[in-house]
Amino acid sequence: MLSNGYILILIWIGVLGALTVMAPEWIYRTEFVNGEKVRRVTPLFAVVAVLPLVIWAGFRGNVGDTGAYMEAFADMPASLSGINGYMAGQEKDRGFYFVSAVIKCIVGNRDTIYFIIVAMIQCFLLFKLYRKYSTSFVVSFFLFIASTDYISWIFNGMRQFLAVTITVACFPWILEKKYVRAIIGIVIASLFHQSALLVLPFVFIVQGKAWNKKTLLFIIVVIAAVMFADRFTNILDTMLAETQYKNVVTDWESWQDDGTNILRVMVYSIPAILSLFGIKYIREADDSVINICSNMSIAAAGLYVVSMFTSGIFIGRLPIYFSLYSYILLPWEINRMFTKRSAQLIYIVMVVAYLGFYLYSLRSMGTF
């Protein structure tokens, strides 16, 4: 049976969308972003918009890995004096466990409050990005929900998603080419989940215009990885031999992981594909935010394609570091690549298609 929450969050986004149309003078304000005068939703509206999701994260029930996180939280010390001994027993992702232990020392053995605090941090870092850089905050919010990313990450893989959102917080430094700050931020994120180190080379790869030589080279590497999947997995196994993911290849083969669902790959590739067809509009705008988001989206699509032929459980968890930027890119593409009348039709098609994908994904997860 489909939980009311999964439908109510969609209704809530519908209400937000209606408010932006009926009372724009209350919702929007003018500010400067990346040197341009733009219209953005107010910080108060963004907080109110995301608050139900944050609260729901604390009362989500036993979704995905929630049970494992509850057990881990129960094993954490209840006083600051016990943290040193506890941390001595942690071999990986020590940043996450340290922060979690500190939270427990503050809130006690109340895992609901713990989940809310973690979700609050994640949502603050992510939706701060959308409020500042998205031409349509509500559309970006809708895409994050309808893609089921909130279930997969806020409700499930929250340790990795905390690392993801820390790398997202580094976006302004990536945009301004303040590489030292960005690298330090990403290294800090890797303390929460080591996979965040994957973002380091992309700090440089995504720079420049959309679909530049660096991104085209990345696509060639993706094609090679797909064509020679067996050799790719052997190389990956060797590269991960001395890390916490040393058994990744063995695990996905023993679990008969047949890769990411092709429908999910197609859905997450739409913004990158549109950026190729609409490259003229992106080049004319020459917006550094959109250029980088386009290249991030290409990276996400490429990794998803590789995961389709290798592992959905492991490789399929990596594109999240890049796919979140697609929710900035897609509304921009619709607004700039189409006439006003056509854009309205495209938005209707987008909403219907994503809702279909949302219900399909929930059914696949066994939610209803």
Rank of each mutant, 00 (worst) to 15 (best):
M350H: 09
I7D: 02
I7S: 10
M70F: 14
N156T: 00
F232M: 05
L198R: 02
I290N: 07
L2V: 11
I145L: 12
I183E: 06
N156A: 02
L126K: 05
E253K: 14
Y133P: 02
V248P: 00
R341M: 12
M158F: 08
I315L: 15
R363M: 07
A272C: 03
V48R: 13
N295V: 10
V180W: 15
I166W: 03
N234F: 12
A182P: 00
S311Y: 01
F322N: 00
L263E: 11
F141Q: 05
V221Q: 11
Q194W: 14
G58N: 06
S294C: 15
F96D: 04
F232N: 07
M350F: 15
I334M: 00
N212A: 10
T238S: 15
P331I: 06
F277H: 04
M239Y: 04
P201E: 03
P271S: 07
R60E: 00
I273L: 15
T215R: 09
L80F: 15
Y130Q: 01
T243N: 10
R29H: 15
I188D: 04
F277D: 03
A182I: 01
F127K: 03
I315S: 11
I298E: 01
V267E: 02
L240W: 01
P331R: 05
I151T: 02
F228N: 09
D75Q: 14
F142P: 00
V222M: 10
D286S: 09
A57D: 04
C170E: 03
S147H: 05
A299N: 05
L198D: 06
L318I: 11
R363I: 07
A46Y: 08
R29Y: 11
A196I: 00
F218S: 00
V222D: 03
